[in-house]
Design a protein around this nucleic acid. Sequence first.
DNA 1: GGTGATAAGTAGTGAGTCACAACATATCCG
DNA 2: CGGATATGTTGTGACTCACTACTTATCACC
Lengths: 392, 392
Amino acid sequence: MSINPRDDASRGAPPERGASTNLSTILRRVHRSGPASRAELTRETGLNRSTISGLVGELVERGLVVEVEPRSTKQVGRPSPVVQASPQVLAVALVPEVDAVTIGLVSFDRQVIRRVRFETESIPTVREAVVIARALFQGMRDGLGPEYRIAGIGVAVPGLVRAVDGFVRWAPHLDWRDEPLGALLEEATGYRVFAANDANLGARAENLFGAAAEASNILYMNGGPSGIGGGIIVNGELVGGAEGYAGEFGHNRVAAPTDSEVTDGELEASVSQNRLLSVLGLRSASLDELEVALLASERPEVRAEVHRQLGVLSVGVRNMINILNPEKVVLGGFLGVLFDFETAYFLDLLEANTLAPSWESVTVVRAELGSDLLLVGAAELVFDGVVARAEL
Amino acid sequence: MSINPRDDASRGAPPERGASTNLSTILRRVHRSGPASRAELTRETGLNRSTISGLVGELVERGLVVEVEPRSTKQVGRPSPVVQASPQVLAVALVPEVDAVTIGLVSFDRQVIRRVRFETESIPTVREAVVIARALFQGMRDGLGPEYRIAGIGVAVPGLVRAVDGFVRWAPHLDWRDEPLGALLEEATGYRVFAANDANLGARAENLFGAAAEASNILYMNGGPSGIGGGIIVNGELVGGAEGYAGEFGHNRVAAPTDSEVTDGELEASVSQNRLLSVLGLRSASLDELEVALLASERPEVRAEVHRQLGVLSVGVRNMINILNPEKVVLGGFLGVLFDFETAYFLDLLEANTLAPSWESVTVVRAELGSDLLLVGAAELVFDGVVARAEL
DNA sequence: GGTGATAAGTAGTGAGTCACAACATATCCG
DNA sequence: CGGATATGTTGTGACTCACTACTTATCACC
């Protein structure tokens, strides 16, 4: 161990392509964790005051951060100006779904400043989605002052997307197969496009701004109306795998001793929002409605179904805890509802079946981010690049 | 995408704690991929000739690399001296097992230059293992010239080890529980100690020098006499998880439709070397003997057992392929034997059950490294630090 | 065996990042 | 209002590395 624990920031860093490591470090800090005074940045990075001064100045010049009036801290000493990510640097977030195309504008300081959900009569094709996106985008852009700058477009796709070029391999519920979404969108808008799996982006968003904000090893599982997806974060980075298809938990086979009924099926055949709804006698419901209905119901079949689903889910989760030794397990969508409804039951199942050391280092929580989850996650695809390059 | 694809090496890098990024880059290159001429380094890193000259000179001065006579390349132009990792920088590798303690000396240029296997009468306790290690180490050290320098000690532990301090949480077959192995060894030897799970280190070794040398997203599963372990490599880095306990595949529950017998058991209860041996009528065997016996046997029960085990294994592997989207799946130990024995059968099972895009990006191979696997992997724990700091 | 083409090492200069020290400035507290 | 404290600012120097020009070593051909 080194004697001096602080500071792994670098000295005398690279001219490179205009992207100093420390420039990125500061940018990442103010983007992810919010505004900070120069003095705080100095302490956190271990860099020198004068260096911070220079770096912040550079970032201000590039229009990526703004400095605002010092907070009145009632402290002695000269007040330190507060640095924050510029609210005028924007990312466009696009979320195609079976019944709508949603587009949002997310600012570099993590505000969703605009959002439009455009409902479609039928499931949109890729071309339709691109046309709609372009139209919505144009409408938004026109209402924006020239002081705003758009860094790119991020897309959350409910399916398998190739990371390098945003090529959609398979999005079952949209019935898209091998569609060049990224290329089409770039052509239509002229902006750089980044696309990824929606659940992966959910994991990322929860990591940055939600239930797993402090952790860097995370298992995220999300239950939606049409299946179960997830994302894994290792050492603070989203696991994409070879091409970006990682995170497909839903199709896994798990053996659940508590579930005699469906033993050789896939996880999402057994743990399913529809089955939950049907036990409750509902045809469709929002998550809130589902939660209310669950709490209101006192019928034993309902509880039995919840227990059955949690039993199966627990096997999938425990497998992943043994394999990944995460710090946090985050459950989103209806999985979060199930978890909140029978927390102790679920945790007991997990504790009984995971290896003790791994169990000790993990906490299981419900997801925190609501409807903006995917917009924020998709925007983050764009901002990732901005932070890394300290440009645009 | 940037116009200039080459070169993400840095310019004007940090004075830091004496560890320039580029110094590490060169060191990593010659350590992992073997000797390279200065000219090759120049091309591969994108750095300037003069920079390479300076960096190599610095590394020579620090005693981490040596320059040898240029290879006669039959090429025009001035011959370029060949740079290689110094064979005089050593790591001590330690492998405690149920019936022996093995210690090895591995040089920075990846040669196992010495190895001693010390058989024990009974399962060694932690203290016994430390005493044995110390004695063996002293013996080795005395036979070594003063020109050799030891960078530290790496330990491959068959169990759960806390990454930060080498504290053994649980090593079932050694019957060690909560033992401060790292601290004891450091005290006994005076060298820095790094410890990790044996299967994790196997994954690392196969990644660096074996069957998955070019890949950076890898699933490694190893079948030993006492169970199944594994390691995951994501973006070129071993996944340790929160504390280093990641990779415990063996205790997972998988549902295998082909295995009516053991549906709710753990993977390693169903896929087991012992069960294989017992079908073959053997009590114990080395991997080679096992392989020979398998090939020699023509009894249908044997093939049935192989198919049953591969069927269960395939479920575990397909789950991980869906989740991780790896480039390579590497099967070691008796899993490798099973795989080689019925390759087509296993691959067909996998193909039928993994998501097509993920299946397209993966290749399944048998592990390549033999008995030196763990020594090399353990040494790598030590060399990792040397490469990162470009020191010691 | 000399000569030119080619490839690579070497030396000097300059640019970029950052630490450090000295100084300037803003706030709190008595 | 003045001292204590914390922070911003400026100037200098250290360090890494690119670039240019020059030198050196080999091959190939005559």
